[in-house]
Design a protein around this nucleic acid. Sequence first.
DNA 1: GCAAAAGTGTTTCAGCTACACCCATGT
DNA 2: ACATGGGTGTAGCTGAAACACTTTTGC
Lengths: 256, 256
Amino acid sequence: MSLSTSLNPHVSVDCSIFGFSDNSLCLLLINRNGAKSTFKNDDNRFALPGDLVRDNENLDEAADRILKELTGLSGIFLHQFKAFGDPLRIAKAKDRDWLKGVRQEPDARVITVAYLALIDRTKVEIKPGSFTNEAKWVPISEIKDLVFDHNEIFGGALLALREMIQIYPIAFKLLPVKFTMGDLQSLYETILEREVDKRNFRRKMVHSGLVRALPEKQYGVSNKPARFYVFNGSTSEGLYSSIVNLKMEGSITVFN
Amino acid sequence: MSLSTSLNPHVSVDCSIFGFSDNSLCLLLINRNGAKSTFKNDDNRFALPGDLVRDNENLDEAADRILKELTGLSGIFLHQFKAFGDPLRIAKAKDRDWLKGVRQEPDARVITVAYLALIDRTKVEIKPGSFTNEAKWVPISEIKDLVFDHNEIFGGALLALREMIQIYPIAFKLLPVKFTMGDLQSLYETILEREVDKRNFRRKMVHSGLVRALPEKQYGVSNKPARFYVFNGSTSEGLYSSIVNLKMEGSITVFN
DNA sequence: GCAAAAGTGTTTCAGCTACACCCATGT
DNA sequence: ACATGGGTGTAGCTGAAACACTTTTGC
């Protein structure tokens, strides 16, 4: 008797992997017609990276593994935000055709545990091997017809991210170690889908002690060079580092 | 071929059902040595109500069913807050002995999706039948050795509840339709594990428009009778009713 | 009259909001 | 010189925090 009999066909983990560059919030998606797939036809829709959970790993470890396989990076920020278990979530005809090509038990019902991941894109080089040529950063504004219920999952991830960056200082995980105030503000504005006042934003960020100015500046830009900042916290904080006051202008406040 | 082949042995739902009465926050727990169990020995520890997910229900529906079976009530406030999937979460010897008595596949790994539920205890009468004599309200301060990883799950539920009552007006779901400001404040203080100023609390509650005073008062109490209030929102709100400012003194604020 | 909880206002202070102009660089 | 984004200060206002005494009832 093994304590970990096969869970495989019934529980998966899917990751909404966010990245930010050129003032654009992107998701790292994989294409069905990729190297791992034997399924080749005209259905080349994108999917959230994910996999069935293995016998001897927990859910967090499964998510970690998926990130590692795809990006080569360990210790990426991951947050489990919801499980999706509709009986018909993988029942669309196109999805089922595809499953037949990749799953041992294509008819099995699968519930999936959804994670969001935040990645510094400058550290990522999509890994050759398991997913080569099938993984791609897609701006979230261009995401439309994903497989299964992945549109719903991605929507949930975006909402969870929007809520979380107003509570925990996690936005920095989407930026390089050094960044400008412009980068940071643009990131917040993109995720919150709302503009914030430049002066108020900078004052709050500096005054809260979350960031520290470097003596260093941009070089070679065609406007006034911006000062660089670094995130002012240990790299591996307790939970999501400590909670700080991060609500932006116009955001809904709560009890005090 | 059925789209919903047996998921049963691998995915369950567990509910942390909160109730509040006599200024005490309680959890509705079931005892292993109950009517449904064939397992009778000295291990009469308590467990969160839960069950394997059935073929044709989604996760929310499974949680709903469990609540209905236990309390007879439908439409209870439920919130999925986390999935627990450690490979060894049900591997303790005592737990496994018990599983052999109640599960068809006692060795199967099970991941569980955890919900928290908020109940008005005045509406609940523990249902005869499925769980009679084995379900019990336990003050959270007296909860200690639960089965499986249910202590961890309950801990997560409490944290989630504490966070949520500061964002969404859901505390009312733990109170009768009519309640006093003292009740409401005591509820918040219990969940937040912190005292708040009476005058500030009342002002905030009334001024925010969340509650409405009734002309009615207590009768027969041995002190100044308190005015009754009602929650000032439709009974079935969009999500968790609208978001309002609910943070209490000393709570961590966030971006503005 | 005593115990017990209800009820009620004001002052202070922190921090959010709104707002407009000059600066440094590349082309 | 012009275009581009960087960078800066203040005044008003809202709302959070702190704080103590009186009222009503039952016993």
